[in-house]
Amino acid sequence: MKRLPDVVLGVALLAAAAASLLTGGAALSAGQVVQALGGSAPPEVEAVVVSLRLPRLVLALLVGGALALAGAALQSLLANPLADPFLLGISGGGAAAATLAVVALPAAALGAVPLAAMAGAAGATTLVWWMARGPLGASSTRLILAGVAVNAAASAVILLVLALATGHRLPGALAVTMGSLANASPASAWWLLPYAVLPALVLLHHGRDLGLLGTGEESAAGLGIDVPVVRRRVFLASAALCGGAVAFAGVIGFVGLVTPHLCRLVWGPSPRRLLVRSGLAGAALTALGDVLARRLVPGAELPVGVVTAVLGVPFFVALLRRSA
């Protein structure tokens, strides 16, 4: 029975993927989708599945996985259950730069919005790290305080941009702040892939070190961890994951904070077990949230971040009460 939660997670992931591929404007049967994936469907069906639905699914999986994996890593790194990409200002920096780019760039250059978001996330990360650095490296408390400050500044920039935005650019800027997977394309999925896979490998490589850091810096250092090096690598890898996610999907809240907690309640706190499961659960949750975002209100699409929150919070509260 020890394997049961893993099986449930795998089934949920497959179910979310199948539901995602079956969701969209055109009514396609499961058979048609399978044929399209195999390359034997009519061109117009194949175009819908391979150029629209599959990239959207891949993007949902990558973004959700990246956010949840980064959240799990940051919570262990900072030994703080509240840590997530938002608290640390990384997502905020990316979103501020993206909204600014949406409003300010000429129409022909709007393709550069993801680049702006990545630059914003990287800038926020650098700023937080620089503010938090002390004589003994960046401490957990200083990192969180610096993140809160950068996040506040980013929120101010976003609100200012939204207040000054002219009519036709406003929806694009709002979409960044509420999170959306509607702009998925094969190119965006390919772009995000290295941003998701390479940092994820770095985090998994440091899985055991993260567990040791959860017991305090001195305790971890005594067990042979080079604390400043591990902290820098994990922070930068998490920031890259968040930056990539914000660049292509805007701000999808809740997944990075709560998915690791859900997984911790099921699989225990050891990051070696937790990181991979968090990533997979975040991927499933985001894909499922995106399905509901497209299906709940006929003819309209809800912000996926709202759906993931509505989906996960009650579940989380129930688990939290049961384990109390």
Partner: peptide, 26 residues
């Protein structure tokens, strides 16, 4: 070198055996 720090912070609930296994990390 085995190092026993003055105190221990437990941000997330580990069991005794999980914590002692950390000693094998090096």
């Amino acid at each position: 070198v085995g190092f026993v720090p003055q105190s221990l912070s437990v941000a997330f609930p580990l069991t005794v055996v999980e914590m002692v296994m950390q000693g094998r990390a090096p």
